[in-house]
């Protein structure tokens, strides 16, 4: 059973400590919501798990099924079954979506998919997320609207089928229709029960569509409170003020 285990994780950016001892375990079949105010370090956690070079792990461990994630390169982590849906996917000029997706699928599955099957799989994936067919020929994220970028992230999630997915504010900047489409994608991904989701969000809105099993409140670079879905309702009513004061 896939398990992502984060133990006492400390992360710095340019010598400034952002994460101050994060402990979190995500098992397959579970959905965890990580909620917190802006600047609390939520995205830092996401990028540190993915291995972005800007973030330095100063102490602590991250393991996936017992394997040391921190010693793996960015691409090795992805091939091991970790996925990060990015808040701000970068534009890569001249690289087409279809070429990118085929390269990614080939890398993660360990062999090139048959072109005919892949074309079909891609079309079905795009249809399910209401993505226009012309999209595949466009340059990666170039000129995409905010909603298109997020749909594209979820398309990758569904194609790559990771063990554990970290979704970094996938809900931000989406209108209600797009939020529903994206949430349905996440729910399809979770429906197998064999995958774990860490949903990072500022708002409770997406949790109406993607029901979490656990809610963690993040403030000052660590988890300050944990509970079930009811904790989200409490946050909705009371906001983060209580936690930001406490951590300041």
């Amino acid at each position: 059973m896939p398990t992502l285990e984060i133990r006492d994780l400390h992360v710095a950016v340019e010598d400034k400590e952002i994460l101050r001892g994060v402990d979190l375990t995500v098992r397959s079949g579970e959905t965890h919501a990580l909620m917190g105010p802006n600047g609390s370090g939520k995205s830092t956690l996401a990028y540190a798990i993915a291995g972005h070079p800007k973030y330095t792990v100063t102490s602590g461990t991250v393991t996936l099924d017992g394997e040391d994630v921190l010693s793996l390169s960015v691409d090795e982590r992805a091939r091991a079954g970790l996925f990060l849906a990015m808040q701000y996917p970068v534009e890569v000029p001249g690289v087409s979506v279809s070429n990118f997706l085929r390269s990614a699928v080939t890398a993660v599955r360990g062999e090139a998919p048959k072109l005919r099957l892949f074309t079909k799989e891609l079309k079905e994936g795009m249809d399910a997320l209401s993505i226009d067919a012309s999209f595949a020929q466009r340059n990666l994220n170039e000129g995409f609207s905010g909603g298109e970028k997020k749909r594209h992230e979820i398309l990758q999630l569904e194609l790559l089928k990771p063990k554990i997915a970290v979704l970094d504010e996938t809900d931000s900047g989406l209108d209600v229709d797009a939020l529903r489409v994206v949430s349905e994608g996440v729910n399809r991904f979770r429906s197998t029960g064999e995958t774990g989701v860490l949903l990072i969000t500022h708002y409770t809105r997406i949790l109406r569509y993607v029901k979490p099993d656990f809610v963690h409140v993040f403030a000052g670079g660590r988890i300050v409170e944990e509970g079930g879905p009811e904790l989200a309702d409490k946050l909705e009513a009371e906001g983060y003020e209580r936690y930001t004061k406490a951590s300041a």
């Binding site: 996917p89 970068v90 890398a107 990758q156 790559l160």
Partner: peptide, 22 residues
């Protein structure tokens, strides 16, 4: 980073980006 985060090894990611540039 973006390409690697999708499992594409660095050398191939570099090739894709440079190919795209041209």
């Amino acid at each position: 980073f973006y390409l690697q985060a999708r499992g594409i090894p660095y050398e191939e990611a570099r090739r894709l980006v440079v190919r795209g540039y041209f």
